[in-house]
Amino acid sequence: MSYTMTVSPDFSPDHIAGWYVFNTYLQRQLNIPIHLELYNNFDEQRKAIANNEIDLIFANPYDASMLVREKNFTAVAAPENSSDEAIIAVKEGSQIAHIEDLKEGTRIVTTDDPDVNMMGMIMLEPADLNKENTSTTIVDSYPLVAKQLIQGNADIGFFLDESFDSLSKFVKEQLSILIRSQIFVIRHVMLAGPKLEDKHQDIKNVLLNMLNDEKGPGVLNSLGISSWENQEHEDTEFMIDLMDTLVG
Protein backbone atom coordinates (compact mmCIF):
# COMPACT_ATOMS: atom_id res chain seq x y z
CA MET A 1 0.00 0.00 0.00
CA SER A 2 1.27 3.48 -0.87
CA TYR A 3 0.65 6.48 1.34
CA THR A 4 0.37 10.19 0.58
CA MET A 5 2.04 12.97 2.51
CA THR A 6 1.32 16.67 2.10
CA VAL A 7 2.47 19.94 3.61
CA SER A 8 0.40 22.95 4.60
CA PRO A 9 0.51 25.29 1.57
CA ASP A 10 1.91 28.13 3.70
CA PHE A 11 5.39 26.55 3.88
CA SER A 12 8.25 28.71 2.67
CA PRO A 13 9.07 28.24 -1.06
CA ASP A 14 12.72 27.98 0.03
CA HIS A 15 11.90 24.59 1.54
CA ILE A 16 10.11 22.86 -1.38
CA ALA A 17 13.19 20.77 -2.19
CA GLY A 18 13.60 20.08 1.53
CA TRP A 19 10.21 18.39 1.76
CA TYR A 20 11.12 16.06 -1.11
CA VAL A 21 14.40 15.23 0.64
CA PHE A 22 12.46 14.61 3.87
CA ASN A 23 10.01 12.32 2.08
CA THR A 24 12.84 10.23 0.65
CA TYR A 25 14.43 10.05 4.11
CA LEU A 26 11.14 9.00 5.71
CA GLN A 27 10.49 6.26 3.14
CA ARG A 28 13.94 4.77 3.72
CA GLN A 29 13.60 4.92 7.49
CA LEU A 30 10.10 3.41 7.55
CA ASN A 31 10.54 1.15 4.52
CA ILE A 32 7.14 2.11 3.13
CA PRO A 33 6.24 3.96 -0.10
CA ILE A 34 5.10 7.56 0.48
CA HIS A 35 4.12 9.95 -2.29
CA LEU A 36 4.57 13.68 -1.58
CA GLU A 37 1.73 15.78 -2.97
CA LEU A 38 2.04 19.57 -2.64
CA TYR A 39 -1.02 21.77 -3.16
CA ASN A 40 -1.06 25.34 -4.40
CA ASN A 41 -3.65 26.51 -1.91
CA PHE A 42 -5.65 25.50 1.17
CA ASP A 43 -8.83 24.90 -0.81
CA GLU A 44 -7.23 22.21 -3.01
CA GLN A 45 -5.62 20.60 0.01
CA ARG A 46 -8.88 20.50 1.97
CA LYS A 47 -10.64 18.79 -0.95
CA ALA A 48 -7.96 16.08 -0.90
CA ILE A 49 -8.39 15.72 2.89
CA ALA A 50 -12.18 15.50 2.49
CA ASN A 51 -11.67 12.72 -0.11
CA ASN A 52 -9.46 10.81 2.37
CA GLU A 53 -6.49 11.08 0.00
CA ILE A 54 -4.02 12.21 2.69
CA ASP A 55 -2.24 9.97 5.22
CA LEU A 56 0.49 12.19 6.62
CA ILE A 57 0.38 15.97 6.83
CA PHE A 58 2.45 18.80 8.19
CA ALA A 59 -0.65 20.75 9.09
CA ASN A 60 -1.54 24.34 9.72
CA PRO A 61 -2.98 24.59 13.29
CA TYR A 62 -6.29 25.77 11.87
CA ASP A 63 -6.65 22.53 9.88
CA ALA A 64 -5.19 20.39 12.68
CA SER A 65 -8.40 20.75 14.70
CA MET A 66 -10.49 19.47 11.81
CA LEU A 67 -8.06 16.64 11.03
CA VAL A 68 -8.01 15.39 14.63
CA ARG A 69 -11.70 15.79 15.43
CA GLU A 70 -13.29 14.89 12.10
CA LYS A 71 -10.72 12.71 10.32
CA ASN A 72 -9.22 10.82 13.29
CA PHE A 73 -5.67 12.03 12.66
CA THR A 74 -3.12 11.86 15.50
CA ALA A 75 -0.37 14.40 16.14
CA VAL A 76 3.01 12.70 16.30
CA ALA A 77 5.49 15.59 16.53
CA ALA A 78 5.97 19.32 16.12
CA PRO A 79 9.00 21.49 15.30
CA GLU A 80 10.85 22.37 18.48
CA ASN A 81 10.75 25.99 19.73
CA SER A 82 8.59 27.07 16.85
CA SER A 83 5.27 28.91 16.77
CA ASP A 84 3.11 30.49 14.09
CA GLU A 85 3.05 34.25 14.43
CA ALA A 86 1.45 36.88 12.23
CA ILE A 87 2.64 40.30 11.16
CA ILE A 88 0.50 43.24 10.07
CA ALA A 89 2.53 45.54 7.84
CA VAL A 90 1.94 48.85 6.07
CA LYS A 91 3.75 50.64 3.25
CA GLU A 92 6.84 52.47 4.52
CA GLY A 93 5.93 56.11 5.18
CA SER A 94 2.28 55.31 5.89
CA GLN A 95 0.42 57.63 8.28
CA ILE A 96 -0.70 54.52 10.18
CA ALA A 97 1.60 54.04 13.16
CA HIS A 98 -0.63 52.06 15.53
CA ILE A 99 -3.48 49.57 15.16
CA GLU A 100 -5.82 52.11 16.77
CA ASP A 101 -5.08 54.53 13.87
CA LEU A 102 -6.99 52.23 11.49
CA LYS A 103 -10.54 53.22 10.56
CA GLU A 104 -13.61 51.53 9.15
CA GLY A 105 -13.15 50.75 5.46
CA THR A 106 -9.52 49.64 5.95
CA ARG A 107 -8.34 47.68 2.90
CA ILE A 108 -6.62 44.39 3.82
CA VAL A 109 -4.50 42.26 1.52
CA THR A 110 -3.68 38.72 2.56
CA THR A 111 -3.36 35.11 1.38
CA ASP A 112 -5.74 32.22 2.08
CA ASP A 113 -3.60 31.17 5.10
CA PRO A 114 -6.31 30.54 7.73
CA ASP A 115 -4.37 30.94 10.95
CA VAL A 116 -2.58 34.09 9.79
CA ASN A 117 -5.93 35.59 8.80
CA MET A 118 -7.41 34.62 12.15
CA MET A 119 -4.50 36.16 14.09
CA GLY A 120 -4.54 39.23 11.84
CA MET A 121 -8.24 39.89 12.44
CA ILE A 122 -7.79 39.40 16.21
CA MET A 123 -5.06 42.04 16.19
CA LEU A 124 -7.46 44.48 14.49
CA GLU A 125 -10.08 44.16 17.25
CA PRO A 126 -8.65 47.00 19.39
CA ALA A 127 -9.52 49.32 16.46
CA ASP A 128 -13.12 47.96 16.37
CA LEU A 129 -12.41 46.43 12.96
CA ASN A 130 -13.90 43.17 11.74
CA LYS A 131 -14.84 41.39 8.51
CA GLU A 132 -17.97 43.51 8.14
CA ASN A 133 -16.33 46.94 8.24
CA THR A 134 -13.14 46.15 6.30
CA SER A 135 -12.50 44.90 2.76
CA THR A 136 -10.16 42.01 2.03
CA THR A 137 -8.29 41.04 -1.13
CA ILE A 138 -6.87 37.50 -1.28
CA VAL A 139 -3.71 36.95 -3.32
CA ASP A 140 -1.69 33.79 -3.99
CA SER A 141 1.50 34.45 -2.03
CA TYR A 142 3.15 36.68 0.55
CA PRO A 143 5.39 38.41 -2.05
CA LEU A 144 2.14 39.42 -3.78
CA VAL A 145 0.78 40.75 -0.45
CA ALA A 146 3.92 42.91 -0.27
CA LYS A 147 3.49 44.04 -3.89
CA GLN A 148 -0.12 45.12 -3.33
CA LEU A 149 0.92 47.14 -0.26
CA ILE A 150 3.83 48.80 -2.02
CA GLN A 151 1.61 49.72 -4.99
CA GLY A 152 -0.88 51.33 -2.59
CA ASN A 153 -3.68 48.91 -3.43
CA ALA A 154 -4.23 48.06 0.26
CA ASP A 155 -3.75 49.83 3.60
CA ILE A 156 -2.47 46.83 5.58
CA GLY A 157 -1.19 43.34 4.78
CA PHE A 158 -1.22 40.13 6.82
CA PHE A 159 1.93 37.96 6.74
CA LEU A 160 3.13 34.76 8.37
CA ASP A 161 6.15 36.11 10.26
CA GLU A 162 8.69 33.73 8.70
CA SER A 163 7.36 34.58 5.23
CA PHE A 164 7.71 38.29 5.95
CA ASP A 165 11.22 37.76 7.28
CA SER A 166 12.18 35.84 4.12
CA LEU A 167 11.13 38.69 1.78
CA SER A 168 14.06 40.36 0.02
CA LYS A 169 15.77 43.26 1.76
CA PHE A 170 14.64 45.54 -1.10
CA VAL A 171 10.99 44.62 -0.53
CA LYS A 172 11.18 44.80 3.27
CA GLU A 173 12.67 48.30 3.07
CA GLN A 174 9.45 49.44 1.41
CA LEU A 175 7.30 48.04 4.23
CA SER A 176 6.92 48.80 7.91
CA ILE A 177 5.74 46.36 10.61
CA LEU A 178 2.72 47.69 12.48
CA ILE A 179 2.42 44.75 14.86
CA ARG A 180 3.91 41.27 15.30
CA SER A 181 1.94 38.72 17.29
CA GLN A 182 3.58 37.00 20.27
CA ILE A 183 1.09 34.21 20.80
CA PHE A 184 3.61 31.31 21.15
CA VAL A 185 0.97 28.58 21.54
CA ILE A 186 -0.14 28.01 17.93
CA ARG A 187 2.07 25.95 15.68
CA HIS A 188 2.18 23.54 12.78
CA VAL A 189 2.13 19.85 13.69
CA MET A 190 2.86 16.58 11.90
CA LEU A 191 -0.31 14.48 11.87
CA ALA A 192 -0.71 10.86 10.80
CA GLY A 193 -4.03 9.49 9.58
CA PRO A 194 -5.97 6.31 10.33
CA LYS A 195 -4.49 4.30 7.42
CA LEU A 196 -1.06 4.73 9.05
CA GLU A 197 -2.30 3.86 12.54
CA ASP A 198 0.08 0.93 12.99
CA LYS A 199 2.99 3.18 11.95
CA HIS A 200 2.29 6.17 14.23
CA GLN A 201 4.89 5.18 16.83
CA ASP A 202 7.45 4.34 14.12
CA ILE A 203 6.94 7.75 12.48
CA LYS A 204 7.28 9.47 15.86
CA ASN A 205 10.48 7.53 16.61
CA VAL A 206 12.01 8.44 13.24
CA LEU A 207 11.22 12.15 13.67
CA LEU A 208 12.42 12.35 17.28
CA ASN A 209 15.66 10.53 16.43
CA MET A 210 16.58 12.64 13.41
CA LEU A 211 19.18 14.69 15.29
CA ASN A 212 20.98 11.46 16.27
CA ASP A 213 20.89 9.93 12.80
CA GLU A 214 23.78 10.49 10.38
CA LYS A 215 21.66 12.07 7.65
CA GLY A 216 18.93 13.52 9.88
CA PRO A 217 20.49 16.92 10.70
CA GLY A 218 21.00 17.73 7.00
CA VAL A 219 17.38 16.84 6.23
CA LEU A 220 16.15 18.97 9.14
CA ASN A 221 18.27 21.85 7.89
CA SER A 222 16.68 21.60 4.43
CA LEU A 223 13.25 21.91 6.09
CA GLY A 224 14.29 24.91 8.19
CA ILE A 225 13.50 22.96 11.36
CA SER A 226 16.00 22.63 14.24
CA SER A 227 14.49 19.37 15.53
CA TRP A 228 11.17 17.66 16.19
CA GLU A 229 9.66 17.38 19.66
CA ASN A 230 7.11 14.90 20.89
CA GLN A 231 3.48 15.94 20.62
CA GLU A 232 1.37 14.11 23.19
CA HIS A 233 -2.34 13.67 22.68
CA GLU A 234 -3.10 16.19 25.45
CA ASP A 235 -0.76 18.78 23.81
CA THR A 236 -2.90 18.51 20.69
CA GLU A 237 -6.17 18.64 22.62
CA PHE A 238 -4.94 21.79 24.38
CA MET A 239 -4.02 23.45 21.08
CA ILE A 240 -7.44 22.55 19.68
CA ASP A 241 -9.08 24.07 22.78
CA LEU A 242 -7.07 27.22 22.21
CA MET A 243 -8.08 27.36 18.56
CA ASP A 244 -11.72 26.99 19.68
CA THR A 245 -11.36 30.10 21.82
CA LEU A 246 -9.91 32.05 18.90
CA VAL A 247 -12.21 30.99 16.08
CA GLY A 248 -15.62 32.57 15.64
Partner: peptide, 21 residues
Protein backbone atom coordinates in the same frame (compact mmCIF):
# COMPACT_ATOMS: atom_id res chain seq x y z
CA UNK B 1 -14.24 27.10 27.13
CA UNK B 2 -14.60 23.79 28.94
CA UNK B 3 -11.87 21.21 28.25
CA UNK B 4 -13.93 18.20 27.28
CA UNK B 5 -12.16 14.82 27.21
CA UNK B 6 -14.08 11.63 26.42
CA UNK B 7 -17.33 13.53 26.93
CA UNK B 8 -16.45 14.89 30.39
CA UNK B 9 -15.45 18.39 31.48
CA UNK B 10 -11.91 18.06 32.87
CA UNK B 11 -11.23 21.77 33.41
CA UNK B 12 -11.41 25.13 31.66
CA UNK B 13 -9.20 27.19 29.33
CA UNK B 14 -9.39 30.96 29.15
CA UNK B 15 -7.75 33.13 26.51
CA UNK B 16 -7.78 36.93 26.76
CA UNK B 17 -7.03 39.43 24.06
CA UNK B 18 -6.80 43.18 23.70
CA UNK B 19 -10.22 44.86 23.81
CA UNK B 20 -11.15 48.07 22.01
CA UNK B 21 -11.57 51.27 24.00
Amino acid sequence: IPNIRKGEIMGYTSVRRKPSR
